[in-house]
Amino acid sequence: MTLPFALLAGLILGGAIAAVSARNRVHSGLFLAASLVGLALVFLRLGAEFLGFIQILVYVGAVAVLIVFAILLTRDADSPRERIANAPVSGILIALALFALLAWGVLLWNPGPPPAAIPALPVKALGDRLLRDYVLPLQAVGLLLTAALIGAAVIALPPPRPGAPDAGEPKR
């Protein structure tokens, strides 16, 4: 294990554990952002520079900020602190058992020798594949994103007050 990988793994796992165990929810969102930055750095080290920057743009720039906004918007009148579930032991045990199972499988598995050269990730080739072989999934993802954003805006709209004129219906 190299030192940079160990540092990054510590950042990712430490940020993730702090994010799911912090008592202050705003801190949770910020720890999540730290963990995702560490993951983006791992992507960079794996040779997928484009995806590392996408990760920073989409996750750290959009999703983490969105989560922090939602935490602030739904803050109750009381303190944002929260107690953990009364019996978190079973959940933690399930997660530990899953990790043990996955680690057991990984450690028993014997992969072939890794390739000597770092594979290149040319953005041009990625775009070629996207627009040639994967053009239908690409369109489907575009449709999904459009529908999701419109749906999110509609869901989060305030409900019409009773008695107020309904803006959607033409007045008679």
């Binding site: 796992l13 799911v20 997660a95 680690a103």
Partner: peptide, 26 residues
Amino acid sequence: KLHLLLAAALFAVGLAGALTRRHAIL
């Protein structure tokens, strides 16, 4: 294998968070 172990640990942490927290955003 190191990367797979890191991913397994991250998945387990996320699962523990999703199972034990009582707040929807968490």
